[in-house]
Amino acid sequence: MSEKILLSIKDVSTAFKINGEYYTAIDKVSLDLHQDEVLAIVGESGSGKSTLATSIIGLHNMNATKINGEIDFNGRDILKLNESEFNQLRGNDMGMIFQDPLAALNPLMRIGDQIKETLDVHSDMTENQKNARVHELIDQVGIPNPERVARQFPHELSGGMRQRIIIAIAIANKPELIIADEPTTALDVTIQAQILDLLKDIQQENHAGIILITHDLGVVAEVADTVAVMYAGEIVEQGPVDIIFNEPKHPYTRSLLRAMPTLDTENDDLYVIEGSVPSIKKMDRNSDLFAPRIPWVPVTPGHPEIKEVAPGHLVRGENWKYFKFKDEV
């Protein structure tokens, strides 16, 4: 991991308009991403992890979205960019990888044309150079016979191949930042392993920073350097990957790790987090949003702040200091 900060997110809040009213989906999120770093953002549905990704790459429908705060990318606050300035950045300095590789490709366009489109927008290569680059990219993501594949349509490829094509599109202009939103969720485990390895290889080659959005703790443990755990639109814990897995502090992080089936749980019940994630319309931002899920722990009034508890390790609130699971009390 290099010292150079690539992306600095400061107090970013995103709110969506639902029936005329704005509801906060992510609340004052702050994060730094360095060059060569893989930062995993973990959370369950409704945690706001995908909203954060979409806010960074500017893909929200701005008619119904409000974003506050500051996102510095290479020293520029990208929230102040207009649409055409942002288009210069997207696909060029930042690339995105999506969850569902079939839906993410236009069914009526040839694979080669879909990769070439990003070169059309951002480079002044000749047609021949572009074609050569397309073939080079298909080869780079590990697909044999690039000339043939470039002429094919998405439905003619397997799920794993399609995801490789999505990666080829994302890295076509050697972006410094890659945002991968659940890149392996739709894939089989063996393919997942290959795609994760490919992502790591590409990152090492291009010296990119990767933001990996996922709900899968196993994937995080395999590839992340740092982890941010999100719950109800805010980061509850953040730190180096070994700290998060080996010395988790926040009750939510600890609950999640305990809910996972592992070798030792064969004959036991899994840990169940009580209650459910509050809906976006019912989040009381002046309280500890996770407190209702650990009702045996005394509630401290007000909204807990996130604090550094060790170098690079941040935890929200104070109740982690005395938190015990019910069966440990």
Binding site: L89, R90, N92, D100, A104, V121, I169
Partner: peptide
């Protein structure tokens, strides 16, 4: 609202295109 439109936007393709 299709995913491939989001992909195109993520490539930096201008809205008209």
């Amino acid at each position: 609202s299709q995913d491939y439109v989001r992909t195109a936007r993520a490539k930096g393709v201008p809205t008209n295109k």
